[in-house]
Design a protein around this nucleic acid. Structure first.
Lengths: 245, 245
DNA sequence: AAAGATTTGTCCGTATGTATG
DNA sequence: ACATACATACGGACAAATCTT
């Protein structure tokens, strides 16, 4: 069975999944914005050089994600195509940056505890090894779609009630303010991308094989004294990080 | 056939590939740094709750990538594990930022042509729609491992010989200098993560299902006049982006 | 209103790839 | 290397819903 090699095929990944990825990319690129409809199955099949059934499997999985919706006789329409633009600057504030893109943002405290600083975090926060830290796991949803999942560390001596404040206020900025710190700035950020692990898949409500953007950041008070070390994971297909200079 | 559900399995991706991805992540996380050896196949099989044959398929594909090497009777050892730290600042220069991390960097011009500005690029470069642009596809390798694959656009009127210069000099910075522009700054950057498409897989020599970090950036001359629009794709498992403020 | 074209939905069968034991 | 079960991919045929002429 010879086939038109229109697609550079990968091994170990089902063809329908590769096709789904390419259609998802086209949607995100705005290729179908004109009509709001995905091209007919037959057309996609010949475009990708695969059988119509394979395209149907791909579309079925995209429909399952809620990205498209097929209607018999009419076609398949794009239901959703959004990517929140997430600003990263010296003054990175989650709710502030997203407020004009979504109706509501909800942040939840998942867990918190106290523990001694490991070498990596001690170095980042410029503290002695073993200094007591408050650790908080938080997640944020924009219009009820989870977008971020963060683990933050704060010096326990200076911010003893961080978790209580956050649980009540739902905001790092406000929790700092409640501790008498009205302003803070970001002094370093590193970004990597990788596949989500099982925990992240569950917390961010991602479908299998999804990607997370992970930022590792340090925030400091206006005098440059580090106050927070955080590891935030974003659902990669829901956000773009926008650097502001 | 019931199986221990130790792994949250994905559909549409071969199990051996999912196992390979997890082992690759463990290597990159430094989980095996102590001995430099991957655990024995039997151990991995029980850890992931799969058959030993499946683990063998996974290890074979990692060996194919050159990431590990199996030796009969001894075990499987890690051959390579690195992630380049890629600085992004107002003065982002590729070769400069990587020079202290690798021995040599080679940039190649893959293709170039001239075309009228699309609405997206015209807006970004603050030019009228349809203004002639030089487009260049370039790729860079650090110690012979491909790390980036970029498409750049330059105003053709101001930089008519960009492609020729780059082909000779192998550097955007030097090519700008050859056009009489000694300095430039980055005025905007957006970052997304997604699965690589077929073209990117081939150019960056990635294995199937790999992730790319894509940055969309605009560079400007010291007066703030845009001189370059670029879309760079980085092999996500080979780099971290480091933001500098 | 009717007929035909377009498009998605369902069913059959066959060959190959994946995973286990 | 062998046997078994299931997923993937293909091909064809026809039904059902919708749109166009």
């Amino acid at each position: 069975m010879v086939q038109k090699k229109m697609v550079e095929r990968q091994i170990g990944v089902a063809l329908w999944r590769q096709i789904a990825d390419r259609i998802r990319l086209s949607i995100s690129n705005g290729d179908y914005d004109k009509t709001g409809m995905v091209p007919p199955e037959i057309k996609l099949a010949s475009q990708f050089g695969v059988n119509r059934h394979t395209v149907r499997s791909a579309l079925a999985s995209l429909a399952d994600e809620g990205l498209v919706e097929a209607i018999q006789g009419r076609g398949t329409m794009v239901r959703r195509k959004e990517r929140l633009s997430f600003p990263i600057s010296r003054r990175t504030r989650l709710s502030q940056g997203l407020s004009n893109q979504v109706r509501n943002i909800r942040s939840i405290l998942l867990a918190h505890d106290e523990l001694p600083a490991t070498s990596e975090i001690a170095a980042a926060l410029n503290l002695p090894l073993g200094t007591p830290l408050i650790r908080m796991d938080t997640t944020s949803a924009a219009d009820d779609r989870p977008v971020s999942y963060a683990t933050s560390y704060f010096p326990a001596a200076r911010f003893p009630d961080m978790a209580e404040h956050f649980g009540r206020l739902g905001s790092i900025t406000k929790s700092f303010a409640a501790h008498g710190l009205p302003d803070y700035i970001r002094i370093s950020t590193e970004i990597i991308a990788r596949h989500a692990d099982a925990d992240e898949l569950a917390t961010l409500k991602l479908s299998a094989g999804a990607i997370v953007l992970e930022t590792v950041a340090v925030n400091a008070d206006p005098d440059g004294v580090p106050v927070q070390f955080s590891r935030s994971r974003f659902a990669a297909d829901r956000v773009t990080l926008k650097l502001e200079t």
